[in-house]
Nucleic acid binder design. Structure first.
Length: 1012
RNA sequence: GCCGGAGUGGCGAAAUGGCAAACGCUGCGGUCUUAAAAACCGCUGGGGGUAACCCCUUACGGGUUCGAGUCCCGUCUCCGGCACCA
């Protein structure tokens, strides 16, 4: 019986000083926390000769609600890691800061009429209190707050560097914009390798430009630029947001409002310039495969070609134009039977003929109107109108119509496509709807083909002839459906043609043929399509057959086989006919480049990063718009450009930030006398979080972003841990800025986060609703949030930490179990008693356990705990510590307490629990006569010889089933094991006179006797 | 639709191709106690057998292997992401 001093009525009635104090976390935890803080135990010094380890949590956005036990799933394991690496002798950086700008706080500020800075400090202080409560070992001397001027000074500084740079694809890095200006003055864009769709600029044109024209032109290159774009406007938060912040249903990520499309002038970062490196370098990081895939999907890199289509003059007074399309399937170019322009495409007016004028104008208007709401597109039926003009397919000279349709997006590729309806679902649907020709140009990879002989169209002898020739077919109501392969098409046509009485048949799928009694017409071109369709119209006495394919899709037997979009051998494609699928694309690109018809190109789905927010609570953008229209960078020595204090934070309804109304802040006079207005948009918070991990290495530097030597020493981050919800946005932006600052010369590395891990979500405890078990996310609105405060008050911080680790695999989503923490608490109680009161405990029985076994367990546990921490298996780390504790009880019962092995085991136990349970470890360390602090001790060194087993249990199997077990020396060899196994009575019983075919011996593991 | 990931006891879960269910929770039985709590001991996937023991079991169906939760093929379910991206 263990009784606390004066804590309960019991202890007063039965004081007993022979028993030690009970484990009381409420006393020891605050005591040690204060001591550690006073001693600055976790303060990290500057770079030194030790190996560094930088372990970082995603810095949180402090909200008024405080932390839940779910958030602690992030902070506890990283703290275990930090403490472990400190004990291993690494120089550990484990900092924390606040992602403090942003809308929720600003909205709260408006509601409560409180300065957002005041709210932010209050919320952050509460987070910090909770983090200290759970024993997190952050170096608080490095705390940063992104909304403080000493921080956003450098956010602005990076903005200006981006503004002042462009990306040179030739050398694959950013360069100063002045170098581009110099080049343009000498050689224009001739050496820049612009895509075909970018209009080239000559040096003469550039030199003739006015300053304003030059500014406009350079916007195409700057890594930070202000451009007009259709953007997502959030009507609730009254600001624009990035594409990444809009969910698939068109709702804003934060506010949940349906976003509207608006055309506004906005600031962007040209992240697309880095698309290729952002994709490529994913190969070099140790990240969850899922995150890597999500980033790759988001970047959406695809190899293809730009192809030039010449148009036929739409009107006698028009000149022919060139339409540039982007395609990932140049191998299907010969099958391009029409073209489609996005309604916003600049050439639409010019390519529209007089008679189509009105219909096109109406359609474009409609499309624009529909575009203001981001309605889910889903399987919306495709619509479009003919412009009246034609283009020439550059490879086969076919004259093909140009349409306008809203299924082509201006934002991807060039805003114009070549339509290959035979091998693209969207084009297929569109062609069928509008009666456009569909010509197959890729062989079906399965080579399948089908032919329907309609009832009454053939002579009765045909089935016999087919059978004789070996064709498989089915017959129903006089209709024969013949299955064949492409290679058989010609022979098949010759066979059946004489039997055709009237009408026709065809080979559909592979080997496409139209078979008439008097002719076999290969279905290989628009001209052939016209000929076949013409004959069908006559035969069917129908005028309404727009194309051969439009007829074929009405035949049920053909439905499956008329369309495919797989890569395959090109057919009907001139010079590339018959090429292997794998070569077709590259050979076509080579062909296009050779003949000046196009050019290979990489294309990306990713768009530039929209950074403008029309709100107050963000980093001011350090640009001044001079009265002559020119943009002027705020000079570095005027940074930080601080937010003005304002009375009213309300956003305006006009799409302008509240800053626009503060005349004394907005209006400035430039040194050269010009007047100007400050940019009033602020930066979204993803700007702040794109570089904060750099600031931690030197957080108080007011001369530069951070000292270069410190950056070179500490970075990249060795272990970065946070939620998977930032998979795309934050992690992509941070990688982009890192690469830019690398190009700029500040960072000697190109990836910021070497290893990344995502903790799984902790859900609310299951509850029963109408007999159904429901598991929900923790949320204030559902009133099911469990806070670390309440858990620590009941069971202590160490028990909370232990359960956070033990609850499940680190990455798994799992409901909180309120019975889990007491389980850990019981274990800590057992640790407490075995360390302090081994002798006083009642012995249940005499167990068989010797010193050798105890030492083995001790050293095995050292190895197991270390490797589990390093591989993020915190649950099995705790399990190993529990088993170690259980082993100690067994050793105690065997009378080992007091032995040398015992002392070693107890000391090791305290050291091994120090990362997960730092408070009890410190208390026990002190109480067992060691000197403060346990957290400055070296991690115990395991002796592999001591950890090795000298006896192992061998499993004896007969035909793979366990029949007996044997304990043998660990080094027993194959021959010995084989003999022992065959001598086993139980094995012999199961062999039972059958022939032994084989004996598999795995030393140290098993023997399997195969009989039969 | 496309791309990922995951399905193991009542629950959270373990398991380099080699004893499935370690560790813990819950539940049941017991010791101690006037009693309870705490602590300690035992049992706790399913079925059969008096018992020794036997059979079945890692979502489902196949396969590879002496041996599969683990590898391969197919199916189902759940979760996450993307989605008119040419």
């Amino acid at each position: 019986m263990l009784i606390a001093r004066g804590a309960s009525p019991m202890s007063e009635s039965k004081p007993d000083t022979t028993y030690p104090e009970r484990y009381d976390p409420a006393t020891i935890e605050p005591k040690w926390q204060q001591r550690w803080a006073a001693d600055e135990l976790y303060r990290t010094g500057p770079a030194d000769e030790r190996t560094k380890y930088y372990v970082l949590d995603f810095y949180p956005y402090p909200s008024g609600e405080g932390l839940s036990v779910g958030h602690c799933r992030n902070y506890v394991p990283t703290d275990v890691v930090a403490r472990y690496y400190r004990m291993r002798g690494y120089n550990v950086l484990h900092p924390m800061g606040w992602d403090a700008f942003g809308l929720p706080t600003e909205n709260q500020a408006i509601k409560t009429k409180t300065n957002p800075a005041v709210l932010t400090r209050r919320y952050a202080a509460n987070y910090k209190r909770q983090m200290n409560l759970i024993g997190a070992s952050y170096d608080w001397s490095r705390e940063i707050t992104s909304s403080e001027p000493d921080y956003y000074h450098w956010t602005q500084w990076i903005f200006l560097r981006l503004y002042d740079h462009w990306y040179d694809l030739r050398v694959d890095r950013a360069r100063p914009i002045a170098e581009l200006e110099a080049e343009l003055a000498v050689s224009g864009t001739s050496k820049l390798e612009l895509p075909l769709s970018e209009r080239p600029l000559s040096a003469a044109e550039w030199n003739a430009y006015t300053p304003l024209e030059r500014q406009e032109y350079l916007k195409r290159f700057r890594l930070a630029y202000r451009g007009e774009a259709t953007v997502n406007w959030d009507p609730v938060d009254k600001t624009v947001i990035a594409n990444e912040e809009v969910d698939p249903e068109g709702r804003a990520w934060r506010s949940g409002a349906l976003v509207e499309r608006r055309v506004l002038k906005q600031w962007f970062f040209r992240i697309t310039a880095y698309a290729d490196r952002l994709d490529r370098d994913l190969d070099t990081v140790d990240w969850p495969a899922k995150i890597v895939t999500m980033q790759r999907n988001w970047i959406g890199r695809s190899r293809g070609a730009e192809v030039i289509f010449k148009t036929v003059a739409a009107q006698p007074d028009h000149t022919a134009a060139e339409l540039i399309v982007f395609t990932t399937r140049p191998d299907t170019l010969w099958g391009a039977t029409f073209m489609v322009l996005s309604p916003e495409h600049p050439l639409v007016p010019r390519l529209t003929t007089a008679e189509q004028q009105e219909r096109v104008a109406t359609y474009v208007e409609q499309a624009k109107a529909a575009g203001t709401s981001v309605a889910p597109v889903e399987d919306k039926e495709k619509t479009g109108v003919f412009t009246g003009s034609y283009a020439i397919n550059p490879v086969n000279g076919a004259r093909i119509p140009i349409w306008v349709a809203d299924y082509v997006l201006m934002g991807y590729g060039t805003g114009a496509i070549m339509a290959v309806p035979a091998h693209d679902k969207r084009d297929f649907a569109f062609a069928l709807k509008y009666g456009l020709p569909i010509i197959p140009v890729i062989q079906r990879p399965d080579d399948a083909a089908r032919s329907v002989m309609r009832s009454g169209t053939y002579q009765p002898e045909l089935p016999t002839a087919l059978r004789a020739a070996g064709y498989g077919f089915s017959e129903e109501d006089g209709q024969l459906t013949v299955e064949l392969s492409g290679g058989q098409a010609a022979a098949y046509a010759e066979l059946v043609r004489p039997y055709l009485r009237e009408g026709w048949t065809e080979v559909v799928g592979s080997g496409w043929l139209a078979i008439f009694p008097d002719a076999v017409i290969p279905f290989d071109s628009i001209a052939a399509d016209a000929r076949i369709t013409d004959r069908l119209r006559t035969a069917l006495r129908l005028d309404a057959i727009p194309s051969y394919m439009a007829y074929l899709v009405t035949v049920p037997a053909y439905r499956e086989i008329v369309y495919h979009e797989e890569y395959g051998t090109p057919i009907n494609s001139g010079p590339i006919n018959g090429l292997p699928a794998t070569e077709a694309v590259e050979r076509t690109i080579a062909y296009l480049e050779q003949h000046g018809l196009g050019k290979g190109r990489m294309n990306y789905k990713m768009r530039d990063w929209l950074i403008s927010r029309q709100r107050y609570w963000g980093t001011p953008i350090p640009i001044i718009h001079a009265e002559d229209g020119l943009e002027v960078m705020v000079s570095d020595n005027e940074l930080p450009l601080t937010l003005p204090g304002v009375e009213n934070y309300e956003p305006t309804a006009t799409g302008e930030s509240p800053l626009a109304k503060i005349d004394e802040w907005v209006n400035v006079q430039l040194p050269d006398g010009r007047k100007g207005r400050r940019e009033t948009d602020t930066m979204g918070t993803f700007a702040c979080s794109s570089w904060y991990f750099l600031r931690f290495v030197d957080p108080h530097n007011d001369r530069e972003l951070a000292n270069r030597d410190e950056l070179a020493y500490w970075l990249p981050v060795d272990m970065y841990v946070g939620g998977a919800e930032h998979a795309v946005m934050h992690l992509l932006y941070a990688r982009f800025w890192t690469k830019f600052l690398h190009d700029y010369g500040l960072l000697p590395f190109t990836e910021p986060f070497r290893s990344l891990r995502n903790q799984g979500l902790i859900l609310a405890p299951p509850r029963e609703v109408d007999g159904q078990i429901v598991i929900e996310k923790m949320s204030k609105s559902k009133n099911n949030v469990i806070t670390p405060d309440e858990v620590v008050a009941r069971h202590g911080a160490d028990a909370l930490r232990g359960y956070e680790c033990f609850i499940s695999d680190f990455e798994a989503y799992v409901p909180w179990n309120t019975d889990g923490v007491p389980g850990i608490r019981r274990w800590l109680d057992r640790v407490w008693r075995i360390v302090l009161a081994a002798e006083e405990e009642p012995r249940s029985q005499m167990a068989a356990y010797d010193e050798r076994q105890l030492r083995r367990l001790t050293h095995q546990t050292i190895i197991k705990v270390a490797s589990d921490i390093e591989s993020f298996k915190f649950n099995t780390m705790v399990a190993a510590l529990m088993e170690f504790t259980n082993g100690l009880y067994k050793a105690r019962d065997a009378g080992l307490s007091g032995s040398a092995a015992w002392s070693e085991a107890i000391e090791t136990l305290i050291l091994l629990i120090a990362p997960v349970a730092p408070h009890i470890a410190e208390e026990l360390w002190t109480r067992t006569g060691h000197s403060y602090s346990v957290h400055q001790q070296r991690w115990p060194v395991a002796d592999p010889a001591l950890a090795a087993e000298d006896e192992v249990e061998i499993v004896l199997q007969v035909n793979g089933k366990v029949r007996d077990k044997l304990t043998v020396p660990a080094d027993a060899d194959e021959r010995q094991l084989r003999e022992l196994a065959l001598r086993s009575e139980r094995v012999q019983g199961h062999v039972d006179g059958k022939t032994i075919r084989k004996v598999i011996v795995v030393p140290g593991k098993l023997v399997n006797v195969v009989v039969g």
